[in-house]
């Protein structure tokens, strides 16, 4: 029972933290139809910027904000490479992901150009240990990560939901669906793509920031496999829960992340941790396949647009 509860807490913690990223990837992958690999670079970027700032004494909430904007900036670069220089979507992402590796090393080295691949900031205030979290009753203290991660994920979800209903949000949805329509509305569809990539990678970097504060450390290598995880969560979420009409897409994506994390954590119970990335890759293939099978089963029943 004890073990079970522990696992459940783990799933929720990770589910909500990575869910923030998955919602960002939902925007780029599902709305813009852009397979954005820069996520592998912007996730650690968020973590590294946060570690760098917090260890110099910056307010942890401010560090979250800074991480978001750094991620958004990197997303803009992916977008500019694709829109202005006409580099393919996949390559634009790979270029930014590769370049960010150096940025992360230098950020963790705190300006020292020889860089540093790991930065720990134990005992520095984080969003989980400072501010309102100190007011939690003692009994709830060990659930503080779950609680706060949930609240942040919820805030991101509500913000994304709201944004997608604004005029600019509707334009963003058109940019993925029918770019010509955006052009006919006298708007630059390239700019909408860049905006979507900025928001998606901002969310990703925010997730990285929250994860870094939970573990009170950041390393440059935590980004490996992020795209695969986030895409799996998005695909599982939208294909498993897509038929439940009262759920909106961001809710589906959050549920998808929780389901994905459950599978991953259960799979890793008996396996040595070296098998983590292999398991992630296999789960991704499984998600893609179930999505395809689900689509086949549904064909005929659902009208296609």
């Amino acid at each position: 029972m004890e073990i079970f509860l522990g696992l459940f807490k783990n799933v929720l913690e990770e589910g909500f933290i990575y869910g923030i990223m998955a919602m960002g990837v939902y925007i780029t992958y599902k709305i813009l139809d852009f397979p954005d690999l820069s996520v592998d670079g912007t996730f650690p970027l968020g973590a590294c910027v946060t570690a760098g700032l917090i260890s110099t004494g910056v307010n942890p909430w401010l560090a979250c904000l800074a991480a978001f904007f750094c991620g958004a900036g990197a997303g803009c670069i992916t977008g500019l490479l694709h829109v202005k220089l006409r580099i393919t979507d996949l390559l634009s992402g790979i270029i930014v992901m590769t370049a960010l590796w150096t940025v992360d090393l230098v950020v963790l080295g705190q300006g020292d150009l020889t860089g540093k691949s790991l930065l720990q900031f134990y005992n520095q205030p984080t969003i989980f240990t400072s501010g309102p979290m100190k007011l939690l009753p003692a009994g709830l203290y060990k659930y503080r990560v779950v609680l706060l991660a949930f609240l942040i994920a919820l805030a991101v979800k509500l913000t994304v939901d709201w944004f997608l209903r604004t005029r600019t949000g509707l334009l963003l949805r058109s940019a993925g669906d029918n770019p010509q329509f955006v052009t006919q509305l006298a708007r630059d569809q390239g700019k909408m793509k860049i905006l979507g990539l900025a928001i998606g990678n901002g969310c990703t970097a925010l997730a990285g920031s929250v994860l870094a504060q939970q573990s009170e450390s950041a390393s440059v290598s935590i980004g490996i496999g992020m795209v695969v995880q986030a895409l799996a969560a998005v695909i599982i979420g939208t294909s498993m829960f897509g038929r439940i009409h009262i759920l909106n897409p961001t809710t589906m994506v959050l549920l998808g992340t929780l389901l994905y994390k459950t599978c991953l954590i259960i799979a890793m119970l008996k396996l040595p941790s070296t098998f983590l990335k292999l398991t992630m890759a296999i789960l991704f293939v499984a998600a893609l396949l179930t999505d395809r099978v689900g689509r086949k089963l549904r064909r005929g029943g659902v009208r296609h647009g």
């Binding site: 209903r165 604004t166 334009l171």
Partner: peptide
């Protein structure tokens, strides 16, 4: 709203 301002007002 073609030609006008899109911004963050309700869609």
């Amino acid at each position: 709203h073609k030609g006008g301002h899109y911004g963050l007002s309700r869609g």
